[in-house]
C-alpha cells in the first residue's frame, strides 16, 4: 500500500512534513541533540523560550523527579534575543524543519520586541506565544489565566506579524476553553497545549520544599491523562489547529492525542529519557497508520470525539 501522507497544514503557508514536534525547553536550540538524531527529520521545533534580554533563571535545585514525571522551575533561563539571533538561529536555519520561536516576557512590550525582531528572519516559521510559564511571576502567566489579557496580547502581536502565531495554553485555569476561544478571536492561528501543571516536592528529611523556586511545573507520563482531556475539550471548542502535548512518550500516546483532536503532537520530557525519542515516536505513528491502512494522517484527528 502507499505510504501514509504525514503532512499537517497549520495554515496555507505553513505545512509540517509530519506531525511530530519537540516542546519548548526540552530541546534547547536544536543543536544539542544533533549527535543523536537529525533534528531536520522532525515536523517542527519549538525553541527554548526567548526573552528580549538574557535571563539567568531560578535558583537551584531547578528539577526533581516525581512519580512517573518531573518538576521543573528553570525560570526561563535563556541567552536573550541578540545572542539567539547571532549564535542559535543560524544552526536552526540549516534544518529542513519548521522552526517556531517560543516567546516569553514580563510585559506586552517584551513579546512585541521579540516577535517584531524575528518576523524578518526567513528561518523563523512562526511563534509560540508562552502565556503559561508557571515558574516566573513575570513570565507570561499573568496573560494566560484570563481571557481578556490573553486576547489583548495576541491581538497586539497579530498586528505586527504575518508569521504563524501559536498560543501556548496553561492548564492551570478554571476553564481552558474560554481562554482558547478568546485567543482564537484575537487572531491566533494555532493553539498548543498543555504547558506544565503547577506542583511541588517536599524533602521530608530537610522538612522544606525541594525546588529553589518552591513551585514548579509537572511534566512527563504523570500528566498524560490530564493533558489528553484538555486537548479533547479545546479541540471541540475551536476551529484552529491544535498541537497536543503532555506526557507523550511513544507513538500510541501520540495517536491518542490526535484521536482526541490534536492535528500534531509535541514531545517534551521524553527527550530527556531518549535523545532520539521524538523520531522514535514518529516511527511508531507510521507503524500505527500502516496497520490501520490510513491514507492521510488527518483522518484520525478528532476521531474519538463524541459530539
Amino acid at each position: 500500500m502507499a505510504e501514509t501522507d504525514l503532512k499537517v497544514k497549520l495554515r496555507d503557508d505553513v505545512i509540517l512534513k509530519n506531525p511530530v514536534l519537540v516542546c519548548s525547553g526540552t530541546f534547547g536550540y536544536g543543536r544539542e541533540f544533533s549527535d543523536f538524531m537529525d533534528p531536520g527529520k522532525l515536523g517542527g521545533i519549538f525553541t527554548k523560550a526567548i526573552t528580549p534580554e538574557p535571563r539567568a533563571g531560578n535558583p537551584p535545585p531547578r528539577t526533581i523527579e516525581t512519580p512517573a514525571g518531573m518538576l521543573n522551575a528553570i525560570g526561563l533561563e535563556n541567552v536573550g534575543l541578540d545572542v539567539f539571533v547571532k549564535e542559535k538561529l543560524p544552526y536552526l536555519a540549516t534544518l529542513d524543519t519548521a522552526v517556531f520561536i517560543n516567546v516569553a516576557g514580563s510585559s506586552e512590550d517584551d513579546y512585541i520586541t521579540v516577535v517584531d525582531r524575528l518576523s524578518v528572519e526567513d528561518a523563523v516559521d512562526g511563534f509560540e506565544i508562552n502565556i503559561s510559564c508557571p515558574n516566573v511571576k513575570s513570565g507570561g502567566i499573568a496573560f494566560g489565566t484570563h481571557p481578556e489579557p490573553a486576547a489583548q496580547l495576541i491581538a497586539a502581536l497579530r498586528n505586527i506579524t504575518d508569521k504563524l502565531i501559536i498560543t501556548k495554553l496553561s492548564p492551570n485555569v478554571t476553564e481552558i476553553t474560554d481562554i482558547a476561544r478568546a485567543v482564537c478571536d484575537a487572531g491566533t492561528d494555532v493553539l498548543s497545549l498543555v504547558n506544565t501543571f503547577r506542583g511541588m516536592a517536599i524533602d521530608a528529611v530537610a522538612q522544606s520544599p525541594v525546588l529553589g523556586n518552591v513551585v514548579g511545573g509537572l511534566s512527563g507520563p504523570a500528566i498524560k491523562a490530564l493533558a489528553l482531556y484538555n486537548v479533547y475539550q479545546v479541540s471541540l471548542s475551536v476551529a484552529v489547529p491544535v498541537i497536543g502535548m503532555g506526557g507523550i512518550s511513544n507513538g500510541i500516546d501520540a495517536v491518542e492525542f490526535m484521536l482526541a483532536g490534536a492535528d500534531a503532537v509535541s514531545i517534551g520530557t521524553a527527550n530527556f529519557i531518549h535523545p532520539d525519542a521524538a523520531l522514535r515516536v514518529l516511527g511508531e505513528i507510521v507503524e500505527y497508520c500502516e496497520s490501520k491502512r490510513i491514507i492521510a494522517i488527518g483522518e484520525i484527528v478528532g476521531k474519538a470525539h463524541r459530539k
Binding site: E32, P60, I74, F272
Partner: peptide, 25 residues
C-alpha cells in the same frame, strides 16, 4: 554534581552558581 535531566545542555536544570555574577549560573 547536581540533579540532572538531559545531560546535554538543553534543559538548563543542572545549574551551579557562577563566580563574578551575583545571579549567574
Amino acid at each position: 554534581e547536581t540533579y540532572m535531566c538531559c545531560g546535554i545542555g538543553a534543559c538548563m536544570g543542572c545549574v551551579v552558581p557562577a563566580a563574578g555574577d551575583a545571579s549567574g549560573y
